[in-house]
Design a protein around this nucleic acid. Structure first.
Lengths: 161, 161
DNA sequence: CCGTATCCATTCCGATACTG
DNA sequence: CAGTATCGGAATGGATACGG
């Protein structure tokens, strides 16, 4: 059985992971958010084999996370730039980064930070909040599933988590 | 060359991905946050082979994301429960989920949501904010790296992204 | 019910060589 | 510089059988 029964999972988390849950893709997006655009930039930065980078970039483009654009300098090559969809992964990356800073580094060990460009201060920690803005703890969050919209069109499904 | 030169990467994102960047781990954490604790629960829910689940759970425990606890019911088995470190992955999961809901589902297709347990309303979208709370767009965020703390102890490094 | 051990197929990845 | 082509080794994943 193939592992990718998940690309159409009902769970948005699973679907997201199907797109960018692999090891390299998020790092490519990270670099792209920091301004990298060229094949060679990604390759040097990540140190991965070129053929793999090729397949990853292709998948990101196919999934609408990046687009090919004409080179910004004179050169005749193309550049890989994030789409709006891709740029919105920044939230996920910030979440990963903040978790890592908090739990995967010794105090004072981490020497690089995401900052507010204007004031140069570290970002505020991401907060999970209710609609009205009230912060929520993990145990104040629940999963609900709305019954499948219109009559019995599809075969029954389990809830998706 | 092995791919895991990243477990000690200077970049918190890379380190985080080294711990939970694999495909199954985050889904296990997801289920755990929703209350699942037993080996069999995870296995049924995720539909993965038992040996793989074993290795994943072991790694999560080794990394301090989960702990083994005595069974809450009478049984003699152990249960896997999240540590505080593990629970804090909720933010990352919410980020992935919101991205997926926004970009990977047709309008109205997604039928399950994370809600505020008290009022049953969808969570507010996560916002990236400066220290003072001001919301930031992706291009108002910058990476800085502080020079390595004390004198030239280590060999020079590139900035880590 | 909770795993461990084994086997096999597939995939992934890195290295290298090659093209425009 | 920006890829493509190919190769071999390693890791991954699923199925199954087995043991506590």
């Amino acid at each position: 059985m193939k592992r990718r029964s998940l690309e159409d999972s009902d769970c948005p988390i699973a679907r997201s992971l199907d797109r960018i849950g692999d090891w390299w893709s998020l790092l490519i997006v990270r670099d792209a958010l920091l301004g990298k655009r060229r094949f060679g930039d990604f390759q040097k930065s990540l140190g991965l084999a070129k053929n793999i980078l090729t397949t990853r970039l292709r998948k990101l483009v196919a999934d609408g996370v990046m687009t090919l654009a004409p080179a910004s300098d004179g050169s005749s090559y193309q550049e890989y730039v994030l789409t709006e969809k891709g740029r919105e992964l920044l939230v996920t990356l910030v979440a990963l980064r903040q978790w890592g800073e908090r739990h995967l580094f010794a105090p004072g060990e981490c020497d690089n930070f995401l900052v507010d460009a204007e004031h140069g201060e570290k970002l505020a920690p991401l907060r999970i909040a209710a609609k009205d803005g009230r912060p929520l703890r993990y145990d104040e969050v629940k999963l609900t599933s709305r019954p499948r919209s219109t009559g019995a069109r599809r075969s029954p499904r389990k809830t998706s988590h």
